[in-house]
């Protein structure tokens, strides 16, 4: 658990601007993106901006990596692939990450985002992040 860095992540101006928060049960995190009008991409659908949902899932991936181990700096995205499954409506978005593998330098993470029903995700993300774990003393 990298408690201080999770705080740094949440207090980063961009993350704070969009009001992202986390609900924690032990080391399991659910990210919450509270609905705001400024998240809307197209007001006539109205659907949330794909970029906003993608960015939110990136934040949840970083937070999950920080919650699962002690890192000395924030994870940096190397690449991400986002699939948009259905329009994100005018409602809060939730997301949870699964860490596929977390090595000495790189972590592989999958994130699923949903609104009303967990079984009906609005988007999924698959990405690689550069990480720096705390050195282990021998």
């Amino acid at each position: 658990m990298s408690e201080a860095l999770i705080e740094t992540l949440l207090k980063a101006p961009y993350v704070a601007k969009f009001g992202v928060r986390f609900e924690r049960k032990g080391d399991e995190l659910t990210g919450v993106l509270p609905y705001e009008e400024h998240l809307v991409g197209n007001p006539l659908v109205p659907a949330m901006h794909g970029g906003a949902v993608g960015a939110f899932m990136e934040i949840v991936a970083s937070a999950a990596l920080l919650a699962s181990q002690t890192l000395v700096r924030l994870p940096k995205p190397i690449d991400i692939a986002v699939d948009y499954l259905r329009p994100a409506r005018a409602a809060d978005v939730y997301a949870r990450a699964i860490i596929g593998r977390s090595g000495a330098r790189v972590a592989n993470v999958r994130v699923e985002a949903w609104q009303g029903r967990r079984e009906a995700p609005v988007a999924t993300l698959h990405g690689h992040f550069l990480i720096k774990p705390e050195p282990v003393d021998n």
């Binding site: 901006h49 970029g51 906003a52 993608g54 960015a55 939110f56 990136e58």
Partner: peptide, 13 residues
């Protein structure tokens, strides 16, 4: 550095 999400939203748009 600006958040990666800004790059994501800019590229998506």
């Amino acid at each position: 550095v600006m958040h990666g999400g800004v790059v994501t939203a800019l590229l998506d748009h």
